[in-house]
Amino acid sequence: MADLRAAGATGATARVTRSRDDRFARLLIITGAAILAVVAMAALAAPLLSSWGATEIDPAATLAAPGGAHPLGTDTNGMDVWSRVLYAARLDLGIAVAAVALAVLVGTLLGLVAGYLGGWLDDVLMRVVDIFQAFPTFILALAVAALLGNGTVNLIITIAAVNAPAYARLVRAEVRTQRELPFVDAAVTSGASTVGVLWRHLLPNSLTPVRVIAPLNCGWAMLTLAGLSFLGLGVSIPEAEWGAMISLGAADVVGGRWWTSVPPGLALFVSVLGFSLLGEGLQERANAKRR
């Protein structure tokens, strides 16, 4: 009865750890959400937290060290680093969240249609998704960014295009399992139209994995945005954006002037951490529920 014993042992541990997992998940979610809340508040309250504007130049101070009128010093252009870090949060958070929202919208729609209707439509859509996914994420982002050019809207489209295929796959897989369940047959035999089945029955039941992945994805999206900007394909100076700021300040580090690149780097790190913790927590909670 070796199998039996093994099954019994895992069953027992699963139950012991369930409540602990639950508590752990809650801790992750709360920490992640708190970090993001602080970042978002700082972004909104930027004018109150700093007396300098995002692109305001202090002609008296170029590359000034932290202290005095500039708590985090100034960069090569004489702009206040502290206020730029704050204002940049608006752009970084905004673009990341908007891009992921767009990716979720487009990906879910494609996944729903492909998964439910199947056939040649599914084949065509999924091959397109394959092509998108075959490129390394960053190369694809570079290509799309280069094609569309700079600008906030184009950046959102670029990052969404990179991420949408994953949602399409995720939702399609979920729909393919769900559509075999009796409630779908029940809806069809009750005279629901195809759109009705998709919208009212399959969509709400296929979104669980999306809810878990989307926050994690926001973190990745931020990194992609910062990376693009760092390479000069995203937001460009003088606009305040963390990746662009790091890029601008990179050269100063050699000269010992760390304050132009380290603060935006830290801000990026903390925000991505916030999204990651939130996403991990949601995932843990989903797993705990499934057991």
């Binding site: 369940l181 009796p182 409630f183 047959d185 029940a186 809806a187 035999t189 009212r200 029955h201 709400p204 039941n205």
Partner: peptide, 14 residues
């Protein structure tokens, strides 16, 4: 149609 699985034949999130 009345299904064998009574709960499974109802849409879980409706």
């Amino acid at each position: 149609f009345v299904f064998q699985d009574p709960i499974g034949s109802l849409s879980p999130r409706r």
